[in-house]
Design a protein around this nucleic acid. Structure first.
Length: 331
DNA sequence: AGAAACGCCTGCCAGC
DNA sequence: TGCTGGCAGGCGTTTC
């Protein structure tokens, strides 16, 4: 289940292979993988062929590759509006539930390999690394790719994380990612604005953590882990939290995301792998997620699983209780 | 307008 | 054994 750490592992693996590379050819084996693509603006295959990849950027769970056209001066075929023309285009990817990006050598077998669900294949030519195949594999097709136009970021800050690689594209964001909030690891993430957003929400805190328009990158696994770490009940009303508790929660979220990132992400079975097909190790570090029936690593109480938002919450019934009146303690 | 419910999709597994 | 239903779950869309 790719959340921020898993997507970042993919981005970091993809970046050196594609930055500066030219897309020589595109194969789409299942057009459902283009679900988010605006088919009217530009054909996916012809829109990518010949383009040069400028970087690999991530915000939350969204990944994109800003593009430079093969010949920027003779770009008469692209029927983009002036705004899109000025800010450029990007190849946007979302892994959904089961998406994988895999780097392969030319000649790698195509669709039909048992256990694989190859949807899109890019043939790229890198000035240093030569020819390379970038495969988008997605069992459940909750993920997808699209060509999207870029918009300037409203705050003028960098749109997402690209490991220091810079360019004119850095302060533009694909239109379909524009409504997604910055993630808690983003230097431009606004802690005070996050606290204000929570103060306005009567919803349960876990629901708010999963709302990508409030803070992005957090999914079910890291929400449960963060709430366990900060001893917070997933159904604690967001507006009941003091600023102090919000800050503690943000600290916990960042610690969990960073630790997972350091361990290569969370892998169950073969559902999540890096660009080389290898699994991450964070599944061994989980304290709450999937541990129902086992003792809480902190207090020994048997952990429980509860149905929540059509999914599961895992918590310690002793450490994580709903508390009333915490709002009054701190400003 | 904000929140909740729904639909998308496939593989796996418990239960009958 | 073979079927069915439930579960996994992020995000866009629809409904309330």
């Amino acid at each position: 289940m790719p959340e921020l750490p898993e997507v970042e592992v993919v981005r970091a693996g993809l970046a050196p292979a594609v930055t500066g590379a030219r897309i020589a050819a595109v194969e789409v084996f299942d057009r459902r993988a283009l679900r988010r693509h605006d088919q009217l603006s530009v054909d996916f295959e012809s829109g990518l062929t010949g383009a040069r990849v400028l970087a690999a950027v991530r915000r939350g769970k969204f990944l994109w590759m800003p593009l430079a056209d093969a010949d920027a001066h003779a770009d008469a075929n692209v029927n983009a509006d002036a705004e899109g023309e000025r800010n450029g285009r990007a190849l946007v990817a979302h892994l959904g539930m089961s998406g994988q990006v895999l780097l392969r050598t030319p000649g790698h077998p195509g669709p039909g390999v048992p256990g694989e669900h190859l949807r899109v294949r890019l043939h790229v030519e890198h000035p240093d690394h030569g020819e390379l195949v970038v495969d988008f594999d997605d069992q459940r097709t909750f993920g997808g790719m699209a060509i999207d136009r870029m918009l300037p970021t409203p705050d003028g800050e960098r749109a997402g994380f690209s490991a220091g690689v810079d360019g004119a594209w850095a302060r533009s964001i694909p239109s379909q990612v524009a409504h997604i909030a910055r993630d808690p690891l983003d230097p431009a993430f606004d802690d005070a604005a996050f606290a204000r957003a929570l103060a306005r929400k009567k919803s349960e805190i876990k629901r708010v953590l999963l709302d990508q328009t409030v803070a992005s990158g957090i999914g079910n696994i890291y929400a449960d882990e963060s709430l366990w770490r900060v001893r917070m009940h997933p159904q604690q009303p967001a507006s009941s939290l003091s600023r102090k508790r919000v800050d503690e929660l943000l600290t916990a979220v960042r610690a969990v995301l960073e630790q997972a990132l350091a361990e290569g992400g969370t892998s169950f079975d073969e559902q999540y792998v890096n660009v080389n097909g290898a699994s991450g190790y964070f599944a061994h570090s989980l304290n709450a997620y999937g541990r129902d029936g086992e003792p809480c690593p902190r207090c020994g109480t048997t952990m429980v699983r509860e149905s929540f938002m059509n999914r599961s919450s895992h918590r310690c019934p002793r450490c994580q209780r709903i508390r009333a009146g915490v709002k009054t303690r701190a400003a």
